[in-house]
């Protein structure tokens, strides 16, 4: 148990060293948010409206998309893919440590670090905009939101862990990872809120795990949805399912990997 904790701490240390990375991302994403803020604000003040979203809901939606992207997105697929491709996975396999645990602890360290940094800045930004956006929060809503975010993060992590594992069969991960990130970002509602898209897409997204990464937590936060338990149970089921599929993938893939004497 303690070895994973150590990896976790090392990961945080590493993030501290690469702080330029963290802070420049923060700066850019605030800039990006600024542009979206003006986009929606100027549309609404000219009398327009996007679907049945109020200005507050629209701005908050993109606010949260950007904030959650900063926290959730860790380079799982890249790292795993490179470790397979370059053969550095071998050193981990030779140790009494589970590869999944190792990857998870490493990324958990980064996610925790990122959350600490980004949460403070976004909190300040949020407090500034709260009144302008007409947002009200209560405890039940926030707790639901937090659990939903954690589940969404887990789904994201597991899915891209599997994308990384696909390197066992493809040899490289870049193109596939890029494509998948695109598709997932669309289906999780990061480009446009899912309920503004044509019905067939909305229906399709109900059968996929991606909407629980962003769209669901955001809808909970903006109170666009009732706080029902299935909002948490369905993603939980997905997490468990993805976890077991990833275990199987790893087992089969590793045999292939070791077959090359890597």
């Amino acid at each position: 148990m303690s070895k994973y904790l150590l990896i976790f701490y090392n990961s945080i240390q590493r993030s501290l060293i690469y702080r330029f990375n963290t802070f420049s991302l923060l700066f850019i994403q605030i800039f990006v948010f600024g542009v979206f803020f003006y986009l929606w604000s100027s549309i609404y003040r000219e009398g327009g409206q996007i679907g049945n979203y109020s200005l507050g809901e629209m701005v908050t939606y993109y606010f949260l998309v950007i904030f959650l992207s900063l926290i959730i997105k860790a380079d799982v697929a890249w790292r795993v893919g490179d470790e397979i491709r370059l053969g550095t996975m071998t050193t981990i396999l030779l140790r009494p440590i589970s590869y999944f645990g190792y990857t998870f602890s490493r990324l958990a360290g980064e996610i925790v670090f990122n959350t600490a940094v980004y949460f403070s800045s976004f909190l300040i930004l949020f407090l500034f905009l709260k009144d302008y956006l007409n947002i009200s929060l209560n405890l039940e809503q926030v707790s639901f939101f937090l659990v939903s975010v954690i589940l969404g993060t887990a789904i994201y992590f597991l899915f891209f862990y599997m994308v990384g594992l696909s390197t066992f069969w493809f040899g490289f991960v870049w193109g596939f990872n890029f494509t998948m990130s695109m598709i997932v970002s669309f289906l999780e509602g990061a480009v446009i809120p899912l309920d503004l898209l044509p019905e067939f897409i909305t229906r399709m997204s109900n059968f996929l795990p991606f909407k629980y990464i962003m769209f669901t937590p955001i809808s909970i936060f903006t109170k666009r949805t009732e706080l029902t338990l299935d909002l948490l149970i369905i993603p939980l089921v997905w997490v468990i399912a993805l976890y077991f599929i990833s275990l199987i993938m790893f087992k089969i893939g590793v045999k292939k990997y070791e077959g090359y004497g890597a």
Partner: peptide
């Protein structure tokens, strides 16, 4: 090395 020193380095 160490987490504390990384913070100090900031």
């Amino acid at each position: 090395p160490g987490l504390k020193n990384s913070f100090k380095n900031l």
